[in-house]
Structures are given as C-alpha cells and as structure tokens.
C-alpha cells in the first residue's frame, strides 16, 4: 500500500516536472485509446455468428467456425507465406534503400538540388495505387503496351507479361519501393541532420575521408532508428498492401500463385457475401501473428543489443 502510494506520488511529480512533454504526447495517447483500445473488445465479433439486431456481444458464440474458410482449401499456408515474404522484402529492402537515399541526399552540398531531388523521390508516395495500376497496364499490356511496342520495334518477339508468373514479384517490389522510399527517407534524414556536426569535423581533422565518415559515423548513428523502424514494421507483417496488390494484379488469377496475399484472398472470398465475422477473424489472425512475431524479435534484439529493444 505504501509502495503504491509512493509510486503514485513519484509519478505525479514526474508529470508536474515534464508537463509540456506529457501534453505533447497527449494527442497520440487519446488517439490510441479511442481508436485502438476502446474497440478492442469488438474483436470478439470474430468468434460469433453475427446477428444484426443482437449486436456483437449477444450474438451466438461459435468458437473457431469463422476461421474455417481460411483452412478449408488448404491455401492458408500459401497466402501466409506470400504475405510474409513480400512484407519482409518490403521492410528490409525498403529500409535499406531509404537509408541509402537519405545518406546520398544529406551528402549533397548544392541546396536547391538537394530540395529538388528530395521532392522528386517523395512524389510517388502521393500517387494513388489505382493510377499506378493504370501505369502498369499501359507499360505491360500485350496489344499496345509500352514495353511490347518497344520489343517489337527492336525486332524482338512480344512477351505476354500478364501471363508470366515469374516477373510479377519483381514488379510489385519495384512499385512498392518506388512509392514508399521518399516518405521513409524523411525519418532517416531527420536523424542524420540531428547528428552533431562536431563529430564530423573532428573526424575530418583526423583525416577521415567522406566515405569513412559515412561508414563510421553516420551508419552507426542510424542503427537504433533502423532497428526501431524494422520492429514497427514487423508488427504489421501479415497486413498486406491491399491497394498495391489489388490494383496491379486485380482479377488476373493466372498470377495468383505468386502474388496472392492474405488481404486479396479474403477480399475475393468475402466480396460476394455479407460477413463481418469472417472478415474480423482474418484481422484477428493477422494481429496475433504480428504480436507473436514482434515479441519474439524484440526478445532477440534485447539479448544482442539491450539498448535498442522496444521494451
């Protein structure tokens, strides 16, 4: 009892001391309470036979029945694997490219060129995936696509891209990196600009070349941010980029074996029928998977680099 009291007391003192900082974090806290914690009991809808008038908590409990459709045709493994692999590539390659780009841009001395290239890289982030889907179709379609016209004019055979399973994984990864690099890069740029100039000056005095300064100062300074962002990314590793996949692949089932992810699978299975519960069941599966993964990876990080672990 006394212990709790003193803990409360020190917490109150902490709040008093850092009023402004706590005030700054308040909007984020409120956001998460309203949009993440309050609706959480609603996940129960995944375990009931949802009845419109009875609502979530008075509908009949049916156990795991809503999860059945995922396993019925034995596709759960394939789509989980696809989603997992795609997102792993997005997270790892994405962060790699972002760090690389951030360093390049921070090294540019010419001010206007720096701003310009930063904007150009950021721009694709704001282009809707629907438009990207049209880009892709106009580049790859068989009859009068850009690539096929090019192939023909160079004297090659036409290639049916929309029937070629092998190439789409690269195309998808390309478009994902293309669209997300600019946005992710901003965070790394922010960290790099925050690195103390004096360290660089000292290194320069000691005769470190530009490449050495990047290798021995910038990269180690970025390490904790990289780990943090990757850990954040892992939580959503089973949450597919539905808009990306749906707009690039759409109904082209010939390509599904390589490009089907959980979200597109669920969309196709449930689009014709009204079923909140089955949809929620999938969300539940994705979240649990993400949670387990993030706990595991965090535990590993904690072992190796205790300072960089999330919690």
């Amino acid at each position: 009892m006394v212990k709790i009291k003193s803990a409360l007391k020190s917490f109150a003192r902490e709040i008093c001391r850092n009023k402004i900082l706590f005030l700054m974090i308040l909007p984020a806290l409120i956001y998460f309470i309203i949009f993440a914690y309050i609706p959480m009991p609603g996940a129960y809808v995944a375990f009931v036979d949802y009845h419109l008038n009875k609502g979530i908590f008075r509908s009949e409990f049916v156990g795991l029945k809503n999860f059945e459709f995922l396993t019925k045709t034995g596709e759960l493994w394939r789509i989980t694997k696809n989603t997992f692999l795609y997102n792993s590539v997005f997270i790892l390659l994405g962060n790699l490219v972002q760090v690389f780009m951030a360093i390049m841009i921070s090294e540019i001395a010419c001010r206007w060129f720096k701003k310009l290239s930063q904007s150009v890289i950021l721009l694709p982030y704001f282009i809707s995936m629907v438009i990207v889907g049209f880009f892709a179709y106009n580049i790859f379609n068989y009859n009068n696509g850009f690539l096929n016209s090019l192939l023909v004019s160079l004297g090659f055979e036409k290639h049916d891209f929309y029937a070629d399973q092998e190439i789409w994984k690269y195309i998808i990864v390309f478009f994902k990196i293309w669209s997300s690099t600019g946005y992710g890069m901003i965070i790394y740029l922010a960290v790099i600009t925050g690195i103390d100039e004096e360290i660089y000056e000292a290194a320069a005095l000691d005769g470190a070349l530009r490449f050495q300064r990047i290798l021995y100062i910038t990269l180690p300074m970025l390490k904790s941010t990289v780990i943090l962002l990757i850990l954040f990314g892992l939580g959503g590793i089973l949450k597919g980029n539905f808009d990306l996949f749906y707009n690039l692949i759409g109904n082209n089932s010939v390509l599904y074996s390589q490009t089907d992810i959980i979200d597109t699978f669920v969309f196709r299975s449930l689009v014709g029928s009204f079923n909140f519960s089955q949809g929620a069941a999938v969300g539940f599966y994705q979240s649990i998977f993400g949670l387990v993964l993030i706990l595991t990876v965090n535990a590993i990080v904690k072992k190796i680099e205790p300072d960089n672990a999330l919690f």
Binding site: I38, G55, F232, G233, G236
Partner: peptide, 16 residues
C-alpha cells in the same frame, strides 16, 4: 506507423 496499427481494429464495435 500509427496508420498501420490503427488499420487492424477496423471491424467496428457497435451494439444495436
């Protein structure tokens, strides 16, 4: 990353 996490709880909890 907020957007990423917020997306999961879209199911909505409404009791009529």
């Amino acid at each position: 990353t907020t957007g990423m996490f917020a997306g999961c709880y879209g199911g909505g909890s409404s009791t009529s």
